[in-house]
Simulated assay, not measured.
Amino acid sequence: MANPWAGEVALVVDGQEHICKLTLGALAELEAALGAGSVLEVAQRFESGAFATRDILAVLVAGLRGGGWQGTAEALLGAEIAGGPVGAAKVAAELLARAFGAGPDTGAGDG
C-alpha cells in the first residue's frame, strides 16, 4: 500500500499494484527523458494542462523506477493501466504534486 506521506502513489499495471515515488534519481531521469531544463518545467506542463502523453509516460516510468520497478518505457506502452489514460494522467499529476510537498488528501492515484 502506498504511503502518501512518503510521496508514494499506487499504480495498477496489468492488474498488479506498484508503488511509485519520484526520488531524486527518478526526477533526474525524468528531466533527461523529456529534455526539460528542470523538473519544475515538467510540473508546470501539468499545472497548465499543456502536457503530452509522452510526459505522462515519462513521469510514470520515473515514478515506478523510484519505487524499485526495473521495467522499461517500452514495456509500459503495451500494459493495461487501471483507469486508462485518465487514470495514468491522475497518477502522474499526483506523483509530481507529492514530490513537491503537496499533502496526501488530493485523492488521485491512491487506488
Rank of each mutant, 00 (worst) to 15 (best):
S38F: 04
L76D: 11
G78L: 12
I56D: 09
G83M: 07
E74N: 12
G103V: 10
G67W: 06
L60M: 08
A108P: 01
G103N: 10
A92Q: 05
A58E: 07
G101Q: 03
L34I: 06
K21D: 13
R98D: 01
A28S: 03
A52I: 06
A2T: 11
G35H: 03
G7N: 09
A36Y: 09
A52N: 06
A89F: 04
G78T: 14
G83N: 08
A52R: 02
A92T: 03
D110G: 12
T53I: 08
R98C: 02
F46Q: 06
R45L: 06
K90A: 03
F51C: 04
A102K: 10
A26S: 01
G71H: 03
L24G: 12
A26G: 02
L76T: 09
A102G: 08
A50P: 12
V61C: 15
A89R: 00
A32E: 04
A82T: 15
I19M: 14
G15K: 11
A26D: 02
G7I: 00
A6P: 14
A32S: 07
L57V: 11
T72A: 15
L11F: 12
A97S: 04
W5R: 13
A97F: 05
A33N: 06
V39G: 11
D55G: 01
T106E: 11
V86F: 09
A89E: 01
G111K: 05
A33L: 07
A52W: 04
G109M: 01
A50G: 13
A10E: 09
G68Y: 10
G63S: 02
R45E: 11
G71F: 05
A97L: 04
L30Y: 05
G37C: 09
N3S: 14
A93S: 05
V12E: 11
A97Q: 00
G107D: 03
R65H: 06
Q70S: 13
I19P: 14
A2V: 11
W69H: 02
A102P: 11
G66A: 00
V9F: 14
A79S: 14
A62T: 07
P85N: 15
A89C: 03
N3K: 09
